[in-house]
Design a protein around this nucleic acid. Structure first.
Lengths: 200, 200
DNA sequence: ATCACTATTGCGCACCTGTCCAATAACTCC
DNA sequence: GGAGTTATTGGACAGGTGCGCAATAGTGAT
């Protein structure tokens, strides 16, 4: 393989690791797979990364952070709180494929055994909850929706989305993506005192 | 190791497998670990079981089925639907430790790579949903609660419980068991047209 | 053109995995 | 007691794992 700028090389390693993780799952991601995906040798990976654990955590953290930023971008701009809420559910529900969520399933399961991964996963979940919470507070301030416990409501909505998507990804089509969207809308309408159908 | 009745032996192998799975996680459970837990040799395991995959699926299926039956037992008897609902949430929320739910996290993550496990997991989830659904229908028939979509409501409540418990188990104490109970009660009250505080 | 530097290689090491199998030990029945 | 059955053993096998390291090749400065 041609020589490469170290920063770019490290970048490409993390990117390749992420791709392998999404395809094969965290537990089945090996140094050799990542090297093969890059068309290089396994030794090179260890020249840039001290351990496989560190690499996996870093790749997950990057992917998850990008997801969050995408959601944050989706709800920014346009000041109608109801519309921002709609856009939030859209960005969560309309993932291109299941690999993103499958990565979360892996991370949750592995968290108990990988402290660094647990810390990253935990922090990112709290950020998601804060994103929803802010959306609710803004809507309350604007007077278009109501919640007597924005923090709790945000946790309930996030957990419901996680739980529904989980069914979707882990069990094939026990429930469909359309149902995830519809049902999370219904729950949000109940939580926020909105007329049924406002979000769908 | 002393000779043992084949049926009892098989029983003990599945039980030992389950114990190892709960301690180390599904992915890290090996034939040798199970054999060591029993104080026997690894060859013995394969004398009773055709493959490791089959063994893991069987152990998970047994543990999960027992959980479900415990919940079903908790809601049977006593005909007050509200009280049965309360008992259901109690039995789900008051697990002795986290290892039971951790097993579910593992199963959901592994489901994508183990078809037999996915099938078992899927079927058991549907059974849980049916259990809740029947509870709701009974309450509707008795006129003490209302739901215009019992199937959907059951999926939402189950997914919410899964999502909340997930946060609890995967992320330490991001949210507490008490909050899981309280928040799922709130959601159920909203879903079923019950006055706030009915279930807590 | 020669040098120092370092990105990259590819193999070796120790260890782990599921599965299989001949040998052995323990039990039952005659 | 001897014979037949089978539960149990312990190691062999082929393959996989993360990691380390001497050797190599490409690069920029002198």
């Amino acid at each position: 393989m041609a020589r490469m700028n170290p920063d770019l090389r490290r970048e490409s390693i993390v990117a390749a690791t992420l791709a392998v993780m999404q395809r094969q799952g965290i537990a089945a991601t090996t140094v050799r797979d990542v090297a093969a995906a890059l068309g290089t040798s396994s030794g090179l990976i260890h020249h840039y990364v001290t351990s496989m654990d560190e690499l996996i955590t870093e790749a997950f953290e990057r992917a998850a952070t990008e997801d969050l930023e995408r959601a944050a971008a989706a709800v920014s701009g346009g000041s109608d709180p109801i519309d921002r809420l709609r856009r939030f559910f859209d960005s969560y529900t309309r993932a291109d494929d299941d690999s993103g969520m499958q990565l979360w399933l892996d991370a949750w399961a592995e968290a108990a055994r990988r402290p660094a991964l647990q810390q990253a996963s935990r922090r990112l979940n709290e950020d998601w909850q804060q994103l929803i919470c802010q959306l609710i507070r803004d809507g309350c301030a604007a007077g278009v929706l109501s919640s007597e416990d924005p923090e709790g409501t945000a946790w309930r909505l996030l957990s419901l989305l996680d739980g529904l998507t989980l069914q979707c990804v882990a069990h094939g089509d026990t429930i469909t993506r359309e149902q995830v969207a519809l049902w999370s809308h219904r729950a949000a309408e109940m939580e926020l005192g909105l007329p049924q159908g406002t979000l769908s």
